[in-house]
Amino acid sequence: MLEIKNVKKSFRDLEVLKDVSLDIGDGEVVVILGPSGSGKTTLLRCISFLEKADGGSLTLGDKEVSLKKATKKQINEFRKNMAFVFQNYNLFANKTVLENVMEGLTVARKIPKQEAMERALEALEWVGVINKKDAYPSELSGGQQQRVGIARAVVLNPEVILFDEPTSALDPELVGEVLDLIKKVAKRGITMIVVTHEISFAEEVASRVVFMDGGVVVEEGTPDKILVSPKEERTKEFLSRVLPKDMYYI
């Protein structure tokens, strides 16, 4: 249902994405792994139109759009079915937790305030920060902020949620709770693309692991296939650097 085709992107002379394609089924949880600079984040940013790709297209449901030539109207249309969870949370600093979650409902989707509030409160309850609903983001810990970030995404009922290194900015002791929450999102059956460095998360949650390096998809498959018995040399090399040795030399 989500088809990413031939995405290309360069920053000046640096070719960050060289023709990347991915086909993602309904409810799939795709985890993208790869060393820094491999283009994972750029891929997410291109398919959410935060970065303008130099080429490629995106199909969501029965609609297709050019990533290079999409009009404002098309972009808005596609973004209505998408949500994004940022590495740095990016909660609206001038709004309370509750307002952060309501913003996309009331302002963007024109849902009546009362209904929006009920939905937002429900989402905050679900992510476990309902007790902070009137606090401002600066008053929250990183873990709490990311929970709100996830609530803000989930409340929109998107078809796809894009997670861009959602735990990279967190203190180590908070990573676990946020990953648990993301697993909970996965269980709801929402299609997810997760860029992360958390291999164990990939192993546990992913329906498919995509390994990227140098702007191309090097290899993709089930977590077992990629994490335990990778075929490509580059994947093996990457895993040997990030995994304890006994984990994939089984």
């Binding site: 302002v107 989707r109 803000r152």
Partner: peptide, 15 residues
């Protein structure tokens, strides 16, 4: 990032 988050919840540029 504030701007990007705004776009991603569906706000228009003006919003």
């Amino acid at each position: 990032g504030q701007k990007e988050a705004g776009y991603m919840v569906g706000l228009s540029k003006w919003q």
